[in-house]
């Protein structure tokens, strides 16, 4: 979970300045912004473009190309569920449907109370312990529907 919520141009500028001199700095900067705010705000695009001497279109093109970069603020918890082949062979589709039903959202969605965002991911590298999910950056294996329920309950309890 992130501590610093809400867009703030000064904080963004500070993160950009830390990294702007790296060769190929754009991805590290976008990651830093997403770490800071949970997403890449539209207002960041001109700041990044100016720092790296790129056009707004070039920066937007990169933000929109990569699946990782969100355009909106996510829920307090982000649950990434693997739908790649190894997890499919262990029934991840059923588990994912269960989670979708329980939270009342589809993959890519955020619950109304903004507690959870669920996203599809294609392989977490835990293919001998499928199905796998990642909750707030932590990896879990052998995630049945029951385990998924437990993880969601625990996350709710601590938030």
């Amino acid at each position: 979970m992130r501590s610093n919520q809400g867009w703030d141009a000064d904080r963004a500028q500070a993160r950009i300045q830390e990294l702007e001199r790296l060769p190929g700095a754009l991805l590290p900067i976008l990651h830093a912004l997403q770490d800071e705010f949970g997403y890449v705000d539209k207002a960041a695009i001109p700041l990044v473009a100016r720092a790296l001497n790129l056009s707004h279109a070039e920066v937007h093109g990169v933000v929109s190309f990569y699946h990782d970069f969100r355009h909106d603020e996510p829920g307090r918890h982000v649950l990434k569920m693997c739908r790649a082949e190894a997890c499919q062979s262990m029934g991840c589709e059923n588990m994912i449907r269960h989670v979708e039903n329980r939270l009342g959202i589809k993959l890519g969605g955020t619950t109304e109370d903004r507690s959870f965002t669920v996203e599809a991911v294609y392989c977490l590298g835990n293919c001998a312990l499928s199905p796998a999910v990642m909750l707030d950056g932590k990896l879990y294996g052998r995630v049945s529907s029951d385990v998924a329920d437990f993880l969601i309950d625990e996350a709710k309890r601590h938030a």
Partner: peptide, 8 residues
Amino acid sequence: DEGDSGTY
């Protein structure tokens, strides 16, 4: 960038 499912 080990993206293939089934590899780790």
